[in-house]
Amino acid sequence: MDVLRIGILGVAGVMLALQFKSYKPEYGLYIGFAVSLMIFTLIVSGLVSLFGSMGIMEEYIGSNRAYFSILLKVIGITYICEFCSGICRDAGYASVSGQIEIFGKLSVLAAGMPILLAIIESIQEIAG
C-alpha cells in the first residue's frame, strides 16, 4: 500500500481540522472522522489480498476452517472497536471510548471461547 499517500492524507486532514479548533470544534471532529474513515477504508481494502493469501496458507496447514474464521472475526472486532473508541476519545468522551473498548475485549473473549474449549478437551484426552 502507498504509505506515503496515507501519511500525507492524515497529516493534511489533521492540519485542516486544526483550523476549526477555535471557532467550531465539531467541524474539526468531522474532518478527523472523515480522514480516519478514508484511511480505514484503504486499510480494509488492502486487507482483502492479505486474507486471501492467508486462506491459501491455511489450506496447506489443513486445520479446519473454523479456527481461521474465528481469527478473522477477532481481528474484525478489534478493528471496529479500536476505530470507534478512537473517534470517541477524539471527541473528548473518554468514558464512552472506554466502554467500547471493554465491550470489544469481552466480545473477543467470547469469540475465542471455542478454541479455548478445544484446547482443554485435547489436554483432557492426553492427561485424563
Binding site: A34, L37, V44, L47, F51, S69, K73, G76, I80
Partner: peptide
C-alpha cells in the same frame, strides 16, 4: 459521511465474516 460509514461496515462484515 453516513453512506461511506455504511459501505465501510458492510465491507468489514464481508471481509471478516462477522
Amino acid at each position: 459521511i453516513v453512506p461511506y460509514i455504511y459501505d465501510l461496515f458492510v465491507m468489514i462484515q464481508n471481509l471478516f465474516e462477522l
